[in-house]
Amino acid sequence: MNQPIVSVKNLSVRFGTFYAVKNVSFQVDRGEIFGFLGANGAGKTTTIRVLCGLLPATEGTVFIDNERFTRGKENLIKQKVGYMSQKFTLYDGISIAENMDFAAALHHLDKKRYEQRRTELLRFIDFREDLSLLVRDLPGGIKQEIALCVSLLHDPPIIFLDEPTAGVAPKARARFWDLIRHLAQTGKTVFVTTHYMDEAENCDRIALMRAGELIALDTPAALKKKTFQGQLYLITPKRGNVPLPDKSLFEIFEPYGRHYHALFKKETTSIQKQLAENFNITPIAPSLEDVFIRLVEGKDR
């Protein structure tokens, strides 16, 4: 039972001569919320598509729930995964109920089991509206929740969510993440990508992709600790138009609005004093955003 539910070894995906995913290996444990982060085009969607059997791998092996992904076994594995794609998953022109009926048919659910699952899931997302509403008439947040239900209909042990909260209002986003946490508590594994760093904090572990390569994989806390060995400071100019400090003093000096997040190369009281003339300097704990910028964007420079 302690076997990882997803095991990826040396996975590469090539389009023509371009590697969208390059020699990536990782494992996902049962019941965890696994965050998959990376800039646009980093290869997140491509990886998920391979794991869900939508795209063949160019190289490497993929095990889902102890089954190796090989030709002819795709459908066996597809039964074990739920997938909510980055593009819209539901059919716009038909009703919620009709979308669910169709999903049940696609997954060969018998009527009794389908109705039971549907009731459970609608209760899970606390949906009380009319099921005969057309999907195109639903607000974005509700659409995504219904899409989540549809991808959970066949009760897969693992679910892949590709940017499920993109374009969703903050309140609905928070609600959606409550659902994700609930799912993990009931034993489901959730593999999720997002561009929102505050959301990523909710993950048990985070994998960071950059240009097709996996560059970090750990818990949010460990990532922060590893990435920032020194103390991170919030630096705020005391007045407008103060001259910026000499950047060579810093390992990191990133603008955040009118503030800066800074990591000194060599931290000395004399430098601090010198800066204190024009700036307020407060020690802060790094956020995932700091980690992300440092690891993903910092390396490009």
Binding site: R49, C52, G53, L54, E74, N75, L76, K78, Q79, V81, Y83, S85, Q86, K87, F88, T89, L90, Y91, D92, A103, L106, H107, H108, V150
Partner: peptide, 14 residues
């Protein structure tokens, strides 16, 4: 075009 094809082919069907 709408991306619903992904839903279709992620299901265990031929």
């Amino acid at each position: 075009e709408n991306g619903t094809i992904e839903t279709l082919i992620s299901a265990p069907i031929s």
